[in-house]
Design a binder for these strands. Structure first.
Lengths: 263, 263
DNA sequence: CGTTTAATTGAGGAAAGTCAAGTGAAGTGG
DNA sequence: CCACTTCACTTGACTTTCCTCAATTAAACG
């Protein structure tokens, strides 16, 4: 706890930070800090630090989009309300992420804090002014957006899966890769979100999520310490479910004659 | 037919084109051309025109990412191969779109032409050079990426839906909005892709897609003219299924106590 | 400590997936 | 131009999975 506060405070002093996998530079799957010291200092000058309590709504879908935020501490979720009123979660946000996606002047999703959140707040006009005369910074933003686009496409792959257990496994795998080496022991995953949130993210019901967790623990693949700490007990079986067992080799370049089967 | 060729040829002469909804400027839902004449001319100088036959693979997932493309004529699909070998379609590409998304130097998906495709090809180093000294162009790229991110998140909403008929309706609705007023009569949608492609995009089986189409035509909501031309017969019912009946009003700001239900 | 919120678990039914056969359309080569 | 092959799509019977409804337990919070 104390350690975490220190880390966040330290992060605030260093200024805004954007993490991403570079589209062109290989980095063995490790996220990189895109901003240079100079850029961070410059951005810090126009961006006040804002804090939100756990469960607080940072902004609502449809609100006038006046600012972009950069998380430096905590976690949040992006919710989109479907036409029938059902909520769907389109992303989870962690330190190094940006939020504030807009369309025609209005925010595209509702943002809710899962834990206490600390963020830098960039007023859109000020940000645009800075971007307009710093091509490098602009380029970094492009890299980050490409990263988010890939993430979102991966999310779609998870949603397209049809077995609930596989969906949950893929979700946990994603979370593990995303989780900055945040003081978690190896094979440990911390879940800042509820089971309901997970359900809404992977596109199944709360019941199904619960059953999937049970099935995973009973199968000896996971172990739970409390409800928010997951340990991966059987890496091999886990990787198989999460679909990480593929070779990185050029893959079969044969156009698969698409039958009716999905598994 | 003749008309289409002319239109593509004309588009080539005008140079690269990027269509998007602006994040901040309201435009009543109509896509806008982001590039100015000057930018289009400048880009055309570094980008040769390339053509691909119907069904041709433009590049494979995992290939070294050496170029970015801008479609000016035809349609294509982005396929991602899941670990189990199943193919999932993460997007369809139309004139005004970009493709060439990379991660650590390699393409993230396989691109296949659905119809004959005409595109501009930008070698990555040349493109980076141009971007580095044109902040406006860079900004336009940011706008386009934000547009694609929203699209991808919308795709996720479609995938999270659980009734096959609703998925297909949402897909058709998306296609209708995307379809540039391309000589199609009102309420008419042209499908450049197969039923299999649709199935892989919305995350159901080919059978289920076929049944959904049947259910929609039998219900008097759609009418088919051949397999690739759809007419919307009952706008109201269609909008209801596709989830377009929502008011744009600030929506209920009440945190819905999430039960188990998804419909 | 009691109250609210989060999560688990069970029984039954609806929906889509699977397997398999068959129809229609499109393209190919004689 | 027609027979033939192939590919795209449709349809049916059966199985699996998850969703729905509902009751209960466990944890979190004041």
């Amino acid at each position: 706890m104390h350690g975490m506060l220190d880390r966040t405070d330290f992060a605030i002093k260093r200024g805004p930070a954007i993490g991403a996998l570079d589209p062109w530079v290989p980095s063995a799957g490790r996220m990189r800090q895109l901003l240079s010291e100079r850029e961070r200092v410059r951005l810090a000058r126009i961006a006040p630090v804002v804090r939100f309590r756990k469960r607080e709504t940072i902004y609502w879908e449809g609100d006038p989009a006046e600012a972009v935020f950069n998380i430096v501490g905590g976690a949040a979720k992006v919710c989109r309300t479907a036409s029938d009123g059902a909520e769907h979660i389109s992303a989870f946000l962690f330190p190094g992420d940006l939020f504030g996606l807009a369309q025609e002047g209005r925010y595209v999703g509702t943002i809710r804090a899962l834990t206490p959140v600390t963020a830098f707040r960039f007023a859109v006009p000020a940000l645009r002014r800075i971007l307009a005369d710093d091509a490098t910074l602009e380029f970094h933003l492009i890299v980050k957006l490409m990263h988010e686009l890939r993430q979102s496409q991966h999310h779609a792959v998870v949603l397209a899966t049809n077995r609930a257990v596989a969906k949950v496994a893929m979700f946990l795998h994603m979370l593990e890769r995303l989780q900055p080496a945040s003081g978690e022991a190896a094979n440990q995953i911390f879940l800042p979100m509820t089971r309901s949130d997970i359900a809404e993210y992977v596109g199944i019901t709360l019941s199904a999520t619960s059953r999937a967790f049970r099935s995973l623990t009973e199968g000896g693949i996971l172990a739970l310490r409390g409800r928010r700490h997951v340990t991966i007990a059987d890496r091999v079986a886990f990787a198989k479910l999460a679909g990480v067992d593929r070779e990185r080799a050029p893959a079969a370049r044969t156009a698969v004659t698409s039958r009716d089967t999905r598994r």
